[in-house]
Nucleic acid binder design. Structure first.
Length: 245
RNA sequence: CCUUCGUGAUGG
């Protein structure tokens, strides 16, 4: 039955949705049993291409037919698939079900849940998940980044920045991509000062900013008529040997 | 013990 997973893995990586759908219908009929790990893996293949509905059906069918006894990992995989599809109600149902079966939550359970609340702009719920993650000591760099990105999307640049400072205190650091996305986001909200501060942190962390960042920062400064600072950045950019475009 | 495919985020 690992044959199914080998196929599913390839199909999902090459985004062959229809064959994957067919495969997911086929698996329960085959009557071969899956370890909780193997089911989780398969569910994850489905989830990664957005087949949350079939992931859901497959999960139940496998359990009802006695072909798999899902465990905490299988549930986490299912929840990840469901949260990514954005159906909050279903996600909450599954969370309750999971608890009912005696499986505890961990950071892999809650991170996608928080993400789903963020995407649905369910502010209260997202924060409440965040707080429990804090209490449990599960709030790591990814969780902070995720929230900071959402705050930025909501126009709450100050709160996002606060989170970044909180990370500093705990000596967690953003990666290059996150810095980049956050700075772009700050500028989209025309918060040039905060963007510059973040830019400073980025360089302190040892990253070399790329052209697009200079481009967008200089643009922002010009719009603010802070041409002196803009020119300053421009010459700095050339010192780094980056070609202006 | 011949059971274990094992996980999460992001812009132009």
């Amino acid at each position: 039955c690992y044959t199914y997973n080998a196929m599913a893995s390839i199909l999902s990586r090459s985004r062959q949705i229809d064959p994957l759908k067919a495969l997911s219908k086929d698996v329960p009929k085959s009557r071969c049993s899956f370890t909780p790990g193997a089911l989780g893996f398969l569910i994850r293949c489905l989830g990664s291409v957005g087949l949350a509905e079939e992931a859901n059906e497959l999960f139940d069918e496998m359990r009802l037919k006695g072909l798999c006894r899902p465990d905490n990992y299988s549930y986490n995989c299912l929840l990840e698939a469901v949260s990514r599809s954005g159906s909050i109600d279903l996600m909450e149902m599954r969370l309750n079900e999971m608890r009912k079966f005696g499986w505890g939550f961990d950071k892999y359970t809650l991170t996608p849940v928080m993400q789903a609340y963020c995407n649905a702009r369910k502010f209260e719920e997202a924060l409440s998940v965040y707080n429990t993650m804090l209490e449990m000591g599960w709030a790591d760099a990814r969780v902070y980044s995720m929230l900071a990105l959402s705050f930025t999307k909501w126009g709450e640049v100050d709160k996002a920045f606060e989170l970044v400072e909180r990370m500093d205190k705990q000596s967690m650091s953003l990666n290059e991509k996150t810095f980049c996305v956050l700075i772009h986001g700050f500028l989209k909200e025309s918060r040039v000062e905060k963007a510059l501060q973040l830019f400073g942190k980025m360089r302190k962390a040892g990253f070399t900013p790329d052209v697009s960042l200079y481009d967008v920062l200089i643009g922002g400064l010009c719009r603010n008529k802070e041409t002196d600072k803009a020119l300053c950045l421009f010459s700095e950019m050339k010192e780094f040997g980056i070609q202006p475009d």
